[in-house]
Computed example of a mutant assay.
Amino acid sequence: MTKFRPCIDIHNGQVKQIVGGTLSDDGSGLKENFVADASAAEFANRYRQDGLMGGHVIQLGPGNRDAALSALAAWPQGLQLGGGVTIENAAEWIDAGASQVIVTSWLFNKDGSFRQDRLKQLSEEIGKDRLVVDLSCRRTEKGWTVAMNRWQTLTDVEVTRESLDSMAEYCSEYLIHAADVEGLCGGVDLELVRLLGKWAGIPMTYAGGVGTMKDVLDVDVESGGNVDLTVGSALDLFGGSGVKYEELVAWNQRSK
């Protein structure tokens, strides 16, 4: 059964919900759906109290290290950590309390060419069970193309059964944002969800477009219960009105 996985997205040291496609290096055009008064550590502590496992902390650009560390300290081994992860700092984040690290851009050259050798090297360095590969993507003529550098640069990797098979040898999970619908609360990319659900090789978390509990149900049905999901801007915890946090806590408890 599909489970809800919580998130803590940090931008400039604050917990935020943004429209994913508006994130850029210079900050121009950024659209914020929500900026929290509560700290990252407070969100982490709430997830801990409610027993929500498998969530993630994502650093959206520089200036977020202290907030990320505080969240991991609030729930050691309870959250994954992503954003700026490389082979030089991966073990450091795990030592700081991350259950796993999430990696994307470091697996590619600057031009977007995939480096299988880096994936293998990182997997050997920290262990397959500690590694989550982020295959966040944009819809293209080919289907779904993985995007890096805050979803600005398209890579040479397509989300297919073959690519999922190839990388699963070196990681324990996938995190997949549908970047084109991220933060819009207008519905999930069900075609992508179906593709992931039919593959179902290792645990996967889908993010992007959830607007109501119907979307949660749709992911469960269309993926055959094989894909977990996270909910951002629609969640009342983040100022939204489409999905209630307590509903999702109850949803997870029902699936135990």
Score class of each variant (00 low, 15 high):
Thr140Glu: 14
Glu173Cys: 05
Ala207Leu: 02
Val193Tyr: 01
Leu184Gln: 13
Lys244Trp: 04
Ser39Pro: 03
Gly197Trp: 00
Thr140His: 11
Gln152Pro: 01
Arg46Thr: 13
Ile58Phe: 01
Tyr206Asp: 10
Asp9Glu: 12
Phe114Val: 05
Ile18Trp: 01
Asp189Glu: 13
Gln17Gly: 10
Thr140Ile: 12
Gly224Cys: 08
Trp199Ala: 04
Gly29Thr: 10
Leu196Gln: 03
Glu88Tyr: 08
Arg254Gln: 14
Pro76Gly: 05
Ala71Arg: 00
Ala179Thr: 11
Trp151Ser: 05
Gly239Cys: 10
Met148Ala: 06
His177Trp: 03
Ile176Trp: 01
Leu60Thr: 07
Ser241Lys: 15
Val249Met: 06
Asp111His: 07
Glu173Met: 12
Asn226Trp: 01
Met1Pro: 14
Gln77Phe: 04
Val221Pro: 00
Ala168His: 06
Asp156Ser: 07
Arg254Ile: 04
Lys3Pro: 00
Gln80Ala: 11
Lys3Asn: 12
Gln80Met: 12
Leu52Met: 11
Ser163Asp: 09
Leu72Pro: 03
Pro203Asp: 09
Gly78Cys: 09
Thr22Lys: 07
Gly197Met: 04
Gly84Tyr: 06
Val219Leu: 13
Leu23Asn: 00
Asp165Val: 02
Asp218Ser: 12
Ile87Val: 07
Gln14Glu: 13
Lys128Val: 06
Thr230Ile: 08
Gln116Asp: 13
Lys128Pro: 04
Glu246Gln: 15
Asp218Gln: 15
Gly239Met: 10
Asp215Lys: 03
Ala200Cys: 05
Val221Thr: 13
His11Thr: 06
Ser166Pro: 01
Asn12Asp: 15
Val101Met: 10
Gly55Ser: 09
Thr155Asp: 12
Gly197Asp: 04
Trp93Asp: 06
Leu237Thr: 04
Ser70Leu: 06
Leu30Glu: 14
Gln49His: 09
Trp93Thr: 10
Ser113Tyr: 07
Gly232Pro: 01
Glu141Asn: 15
Gly84Thr: 08
Pro76Lys: 13
Cys7Asn: 09
Arg254Cys: 07
Ala250Pro: 04
Glu222Gln: 15
Asp95Ala: 15
Gly186Ser: 09
Gly97Lys: 07
Ile58Met: 13
Asp218Trp: 05
Asn109Pro: 02
Trp75Asp: 14
Ala178Asn: 10
Ile126Pro: 06
Arg138Ile: 11
Val157Cys: 08
Asp129Thr: 09
Asn252Arg: 12
Thr153Lys: 15
Gly211Trp: 00
Gly201Lys: 05
Tyr245Leu: 08
Met53Ala: 11
Lys244Gln: 12
Leu237Pro: 00
Asp165Ala: 12
Gly61Leu: 03
Leu195Lys: 13
Met204Gln: 11
Asp134Asn: 14
Phe4Lys: 02
Arg161Glu: 13
Leu135Thr: 06
Ser113Ala: 14
Val243Asn: 05
Val57Glu: 01
Ile58Val: 14
Arg118Ser: 11
Ile176Pro: 00
Val216Gln: 02
Glu92Cys: 06
Val157Tyr: 03
Gly84Asp: 07
Gly127Phe: 04
Val188Tyr: 02
Lys256Asp: 09
Cys185Gln: 15
Gly240Gln: 08
Val188Ile: 14
Leu30His: 07
Gly208His: 04
Ile94Lys: 09
Arg161Cys: 00
Asp50Thr: 08
Glu32Pro: 00
Ile176Cys: 02
Gly97Tyr: 09
Leu23Cys: 03
Pro62Lys: 13
